[in-house]
Design a protein around this nucleic acid. Structure first.
Lengths: 209, 209
DNA sequence: ACTATAACCGGAGCCAGCTCCGGTTAAAGG
DNA sequence: CCTTTAACCGGAGCTGGCTCCGGTTATAGT
């Protein structure tokens, strides 16, 4: 409903759906480098149809995960509701990184999504940016965070962390880098990376929040 | 395992050189996605030879730029010689990011290089990490920078900045993100992105943990 | 100098990404 | 219901990445 594009012909719309479903299945099972031919066949359409609708692999990836991206963006509100703004921001970025690392192919497409100024991929980018903006403003208002860093920059920082940690999925590295980002955002130089948390060694953080 | 690689046969060594030369030319002219077939033909070898020597595209990229990577790593010393440690670190990272953005294909191969624990690409990674370590230690010794952030993390942070800014080569974004990283590294919360110049000398001990 | 052998060379071949175009069909108008 | 037309479908086909193997050649030992 939010799609403002011109109405597709009925059959085209059906095919569109089927491709996305097949893509979701394929990315989840086969990984990021699945054969697009296979996706097309699996969806019962020709390869030409797939490419007409999703000119690049990134377009397909972005569309496949769009729903979940929206959910991620929406989670900002929920976090703000139950955590202090600064913690909410930190938590959201952690979630963002985990999201990128989890969804196969996402790290592949992320640069294109975050940098998107041309094309249609702007949608995901704007959603994420708005979420960061909301979190950041709240933290700034709380007085613990600098007010001279644009939300877009914070988003890019989180994206950079996600990208560099995505390889070999180094979750703990990502966490430390996010600590660094937060330290850079804070007004007061607070050194300790983990807040007042000291559960001990061995960190199995199930991100299911 | 400390055994150096076995000497190549004379002809193999020549071919190795020629491939690297052709690759350097191709990457510079055609961009990151040059045809490897073309490189092989241009070097006067078969495609099989190229792939035997450089199993993946990343291997070829890493080898092609190895010389320049070494130069970049060495530049740390020179920077330390003419700038306060903190500025040297910042400057080096700026150089690193510019390097990645300039060399075609580098951003493609960077994650593999920085994450390398398997394989032979460890060389470049270790060099860069050593350079960062040197700069970081100097800055810590000068007393303006935290001592609880591993050099590897700082390197990864710079890598993340390079990656996320590499798309569309957003140099100013990279610069701002490096400001953020530096702010996160500093002991004193200095807000202004461009460092306010504090060549303070001789304050040895950081605060007790 | 000659032979044995291990390493090397290089292209044929398979597979996937991506493009292009002729046939087909939904949708609107008479 | 029939015609028109514009949009859609899908695969043939070209290109490039990557593998595999038979022929060739440097190098060591006699």
């Amino acid at each position: 409903m939010t799609t403002g594009q011109r109405r597709l012909r009925a059959d085209a719309q059906v095919n569109h759906e089927r491709v996305l479903e097949a893509a979701a299945r394929a990315f989840a099972q086969e990984g990021a480098d699945t054969s697009l031919k296979a996706i097309a066949k699996n969806a019962g359409v020709g390869i030409g149809t797939l490419y007409r609708r999703f000119p690049t692999r990134e377009d397909l990836i972005e569309a496949t995960y769009r729903r979940e991206t929206e959910r991620l963006a929406e989670s900002a509100g929920e976090l703000l509701g139950r955590l202090p703004p600064e913690d909410a921001l930190r938590q959201w970025m952690e979630g963002f990184v985990g999201y990128v690392m989890t969804k196969n192919g996402m790290s592949e497409a992320l640069p294109g999504i975050l940098a998107a100024r041309e094309g249609l991929r702007t949608h995901s980018r704007d959603l994420l940016c708005a979420a960061v903006d909301r979190l950041l403003r709240a933290a700034v208002a709380a007085g613990t965070v600098r007010d001279d860093v644009p939300a877009a920059d914070v988003m890019m920082a989180a994206g950079g962390v996600a990208l560099i940690a995505s390889h070999e999925s180094q979750r703990d590295l990502a966490s430390r880098l996010l600590d660094l980002v937060m330290a850079g955002l804070r007004l007061t130089a607070s050194l300790g990376p983990p807040p007042p948390r000291r559960p001990g060694t061995g960190s199995p953080p199930p991100s299911s929040s």
